[in-house]
Design a protein around this nucleic acid. Structure first.
Lengths: 214, 214
DNA sequence: ATGTTTGTTGACTGTTTGGTCAATTATTAT
DNA sequence: ATAATAATTGACCAAACAGTCAACAAACAT
């Protein structure tokens, strides 16, 4: 589930270290989702990674460090996976691109999305700065672009911030509520074609909602 | 945050009991959101309720019982708050009604929504039956009504299940991601007028997405 | 008034927790 | 080969944990 991007830890990364850290983070991610931060025990993470607890604590010197490493990977992935929207794309292509990117992320990496969602729902206790600075800036920038298109008569006059929330929530939902959705649809797993189907559905309906009235 | 509906516990409900239980559940709800089920300690719940731990355990004989009581109230509230959709309403009024009801619930009772979201994201460990039976039935029934309108040429041919997910997620988002949304909008709290604004936004855009093409 | 139920609480218990440490073994560099 | 560094792990500890219990106080019913 965890996809390690180009790592840049301060520690020297020997081969064993790299592999062990990956292994531990993989185990920890699952454990943190199921049990929550406080509820996940280092022992249970170690068990899942098939390592002695002391070994886990050798690589990450405490539980919080493990969690922070996971959050960092999650944010990196988000940063990398979410396509940028450019003025020259125009509203239609921009919305298509952003929905496609987010749906893909949700289906390909639901666990990252879940970790993030848990963190926010629980009050962003470990993410305060990120939400306050980076995210606010991101939303405002994108909202500005949408507003430009609106002023320019390229799309309907919808509230850009609400539009971003709509795209965010409707795409994210397929990751965070995976359990519920699969249950409702009576399925065991998502399949490749679900990505296309959902992307098309959301793109269609949201684009129609943003088209100029005539 | 907790709104106690007409209670029907098996235990006799003396006045003191009723008040204490309410007080404890209120404290526990906040604690379970912040710390998660396993992470919340009975001691911390007791502290928040300003009661000795032993007293809390006198009213609810263990932690799981507290949590179950909260989940039950959450489901009751959901069941009661979500308006029904009827064939005779037609698609437009049905969508308006359901969005309005869900947005209102999200803004008026975000904590209930958060508890529910945490449960689902973490795998619905305490809700398996609910999700498997009740919810599936609910979605299928509503999807059937939408399908009828589609077949009858009263609305565009969109996938009804995806439409329900879209309405669910976009409305729920304002409760679950409250922290993030308030941060982005640089606000301390939601205000009454936010309910209208969001309801109008979502209703407009989703209705336009469901209108027949011509 | 008196007995009975209901509520209150400090003290206790066995278990699990995060984290340390020292002793030992692998790996690598020279 | 040997020294230095990295990795492994069982044993250990203080703190926090869920839950019990017995002793007592309040409230209530008659």
């Amino acid at each position: 589930m965890i996809k390690v991007a180009a790592k840049e830890t301060t520690k020297k990364t020997g081969k064993i270290r790299e592999k062990s850290e990956y292994n531990i983070l993989q185990a920890a991610q699952a454990e943190f989702i199921i049990q929550g931060y406080k509820g996940a025990s280092v022992q249970s993470i170690a068990d899942r990674a098939q390592l002695p607890k002391a070994n886990v604590l050798y690589y990450f010197k405490n539980k919080e460090n493990i969690y922070h490493a996971i959050l960092q990977l999650t944010l990196d992935m988000w940063d990398q996976g979410i396509g940028d929207i450019k003025l020259e794309d125009g509203p239609q292509m921009a919305i298509e691109k952003i929905i496609a990117a987010k749906v893909k992320m949700s289906f390909k990496n639901p666990n990252a999305s879940k970790i993030y969602a848990l963190e926010i729902i629980q009050g962003a206790q470990h993410l305060k700065d990120f939400a306050r600075t980076y995210l606010r800036k991101w939303v405002r920038e994108k909202a500005k672009v949408f507003q430009h298109w609106i002023d320019n008569g390229e799309m309907a006059d919808v509230n850009p911030v609400n539009l971003i929330f709509l795209i965010w929530s409707s795409t994210q939902h397929y990751a965070d509520f995976e359990t519920q959705i699969l249950t409702i649809m009576n399925r065991a797993d998502y399949e490749e074609e679900d990505i296309e189907q959902v992307t098309e559905f959301l793109t269609d309906i949201i684009l129609r909602g943003c088209k100029l009235k005539q």
